[in-house]
């Protein structure tokens, strides 16, 4: 008994020790970024890898928040939130619908269409930038959030495929049972599958939020007025190869820009791991 207990304590220590050692390497760059955001200009490059700023000054934050040309980071953050929240809702909701269609209903042309969807993921986005720009400028959507938001409501292959794979793990007997209870396809989707793929949807939401949040080329092309710029685009404006960069301000705003992504992750992760194992589902 004692031996077993000792062994357990040992594994626990090994487990946590291992995680903390690796965890330090995981965290170091992020901590470095945060530390740098409090350092003054000279300190950033002189004692570059130190994680402890000599003083805790918020000057960089004040300076950075002012933004560019009279447009503060308040505006950039607001724009980011509008774009990202609208897109995330659209991507997750539409992808769940489509995933159900592909995973659970047998219809004509399914194979071909599924293959088409996979193929669309294989073409590098760089060559689609110009054709898409031509399309959206012809629709008159340039200088609005529409080119960045509207396509999100038409499903996103990565998430569709992800949710399909999660639906694979759910026994079809459930569908059959629901059908016998008088559910139609919509009912099966909405009442049975949707709650069960919640972890996949939350995962998708985290990714969607993050990808849209840090997207650079989309806003660069479609949003021309600086008061429409999101944070990702604004952050690039700190640095110019020919002029002095306000590194402190850049690090401060970079740090700040990670906060929403971080919060979303912290809020959502518990839903991912709550998962369906708590529902006591049996195959």
């Amino acid at each position: 008994m004692g031996l077993r207990k000792e062994k357990r304590i040992f594994t626990t220590i090994a487990y946590h020790g291992f995680i903390w050692i690796f965890g330090f390497f995981m965290m170091y760059p992020v901590l470095w970024l945060i530390a740098s955001s409090f350092k003054d200009e000279a300190e950033i490059f002189q004692k570059s890898y130190s994680l402890i700023p000599s003083s805790l000054k918020f000057d960089n934050y004040m300076q950075g928040w002012k933004g560019f040309g009279g447009i503060s980071f308040g505006t950039f953050f607001k724009n980011s939130f509008v774009i990202v929240i609208l897109s995330t809702i659209g991507q997750v909701a539409s992808s769940a619908l489509v995933a159900y269609g592909f995973a659970r209903i047998k219809f004509v042309g399914q194979r071909v269409l599924f293959a088409c969807m996979i193929i669309t993921m294989l073409l590098p986005s760089q060559v689609l930038m110009i054709p898409q720009y031509i399309l959206f400028s012809r629709l008159g959507w340039v200088n609005s959030f529409r080119p960045l938001v509207v396509p999100s409501y038409f499903g996103y292959p990565f998430f569709i495929f992800l949710m399909m794979q999660f639906m694979e793990g759910i026994p079809r007997e459930l569908d059959e049972a629901a059908r016998i209870d008088g559910c139609n396809q919509w009912g099966i989707f909405f009442r049975i599958l949707l709650p069960l793929i919640r972890p996949a949807m939350i995962t998708s939401a985290i990714f969607s939020f993050y990808w849209k949040w840090q997207d650079f080329f989309g806003p660069l092309l479609y949003l021309k007025k600086p008061n429409l710029y999101p944070v990702s685009l604004a952050l690039k404006m700190f640095s110019d190869p020919a002029a002095v960069t306000d590194w402190g301000a850049m690090f401060a705003m970079s740090t700040l820009s990670l906060v929403p992504v971080f919060i979303i992750f912290v809020m959502c992760q518990k839903y991912i791991v709550e998962g369906i194992s708590t529902t006591g589902l049996k195959g």
Binding site: S94, L97, F107, V108, G155, N184
Partner: peptide, 11 residues
């Protein structure tokens, strides 16, 4: 067929 296309129609 109808239901399938309805579900995948957004995409």
């Amino acid at each position: 067929n109808l239901a399938g296309y309805a579900f995948i129609s957004p995409w």
